[in-house]
Amino acid sequence: MSFFRRFSRSPEAVIGASILGVLVVMALFAPLLFPRDPLSIAGPALLRPFQDWSLPLGTDRLGRDVLAGLFHGARTSLAVGLASAATAIIIGTIVGTLAGFAGGLTDEALMRITDAFQTVPGFLLALAFVSVIGPSLFVVVLAIALGTWTGPARIARAEVLSIRERDYVASARVIGMHPLEIAFREVLPNALPPVLALSSVIVAAAILTEAALSFLGLGDPNRVTWGGMIAEGRTVLRSAPFLSIIPGIALVLTVLGVYLAGEGAVETTAVRRGRS
């Protein structure tokens, strides 16, 4: 059975993948559907949803189009989620591979650093980092990666510890390959799959962290973000709750979609590995 057929058998995975698909389409087509700056004032303030079909989801306190914000916000959320997960996994696997493969003092030092990062709650770390350096998209991505790279690092190290004892690694040593070359060309690719299985969790966490940072006013103020939209709507929560509810639902669906799709992918590959 092909991967896709097995994947499509699990209903959760299909739901997750379709949500993600919609999200990716939203993000890709946002600039085509809403060519104006989503922060520009498009109509009267606090227009309720489904009143005016040129602004189907209504407008916020300044008269900005909520639907345009939702589409452009999807871009930010996905971009931040993917970029931080990628950064975290790259940093994590490099550190983990080095520690596991080198062993000894290097291993000790790198793992104690990992421990140090792991003892600080990731969100607090991101909060401190952003408030010191100042909010911009790049800093936010870095801040989130800073709190999440430890998971991949630990898993990569554990994998490397078992892989480095295998015969093909020993033979690579015998033919005189440079240790670094062995680590990154022979060991790392084989240690990667379990680390990648972690990526869906990291992406979901990163999207949530970005939303939380924006909610606290530490997001990039020049971009629409769902967290920022929720925070904006909070001041009028009693009189215009839709302003917080709409981006809130989008956020929940996204995180759910990423998680379900990731879970589905992991299960599918696990089944395949088990059979082979």
């Binding site: 700056d37 922060l39 520009s40 004032i41 300044l62 103020p221």
Partner: peptide, 15 residues
Amino acid sequence: NETKQFGDYLRQALA
């Protein structure tokens, strides 16, 4: 809140 919102507005007005 109002000074922050005016900042958002001014950015658009300048655009």
